[in-house]
């Protein structure tokens, strides 16, 4: 596979931007367009870009965790965020909000945690698909 130097260099600068943007989308998602799903897709596209520029193996090394672990932890976080509602209100998935506002992030509550679960799940599944396709291609 021939990869241009331009793409390789540009990727190095683009990836941090894309990851920050994906977090921005994740945090913005409660009341405005955005959320865990889109955020996860943007983050996955950042890694996909890196994989196009540098190949699958380096991407997997950079990611450190396996996509399957991302899927599992994402699902788990999403489900567990629902249990806070049971503990505090006796209703599954009822939103629990902290009173104090945090700087930059704003209000924090279980919907945000749920969205983080979605973020990880989407990231994990997209990467699983992308890696599988790349590995198929290399064989």
């Amino acid at each position: 596979m021939i990869v241009s130097v331009i793409l390789k260099t540009a990727t190095r600068y683009l990836i941090p931007l894309m990851l920050v943007f994906s977090f921005f989308l994740l945090l913005r998602g409660h009341n405005e367009p955005g959320g865990g799903f889109v955020g996860g897709l943007v983050a996955a596209s950042a890694y996909a870009l890196f994989a196009i520029a540098n190949g699958v193996k380096p991407t997997q090394q950079m990611l450190r965790v396996k996509p399957l672990s991302l899927i599992v932890s994402g699902l788990l976080i999403a489900v567990l965020s629902g249990f806070a509602g049971i503990v505090y209100y006796g209703v599954f998935m009822k939103a629990f909000w902290f009173e104090t506002k945090f700087p930059v992030i704003g209000k924090i509550g279980t919907p945000l945690i749920f969205d983080m679960g979605v973020y990880l799940l989407v990231l994990g599944i997209s990467l699983k698909i992308i890696f599988s396709l790349f590995e198929e291609d290399e064989q």
């Binding site: 509602g85 209100y89 209703v91 599954f92 998935m93 009822k94 939103a95």
Partner: peptide, 13 residues
Amino acid sequence: VRADGILVLHVGG
């Protein structure tokens, strides 16, 4: 259900 009739849960309150 047999004891109390139809059960409802409004998810998320």
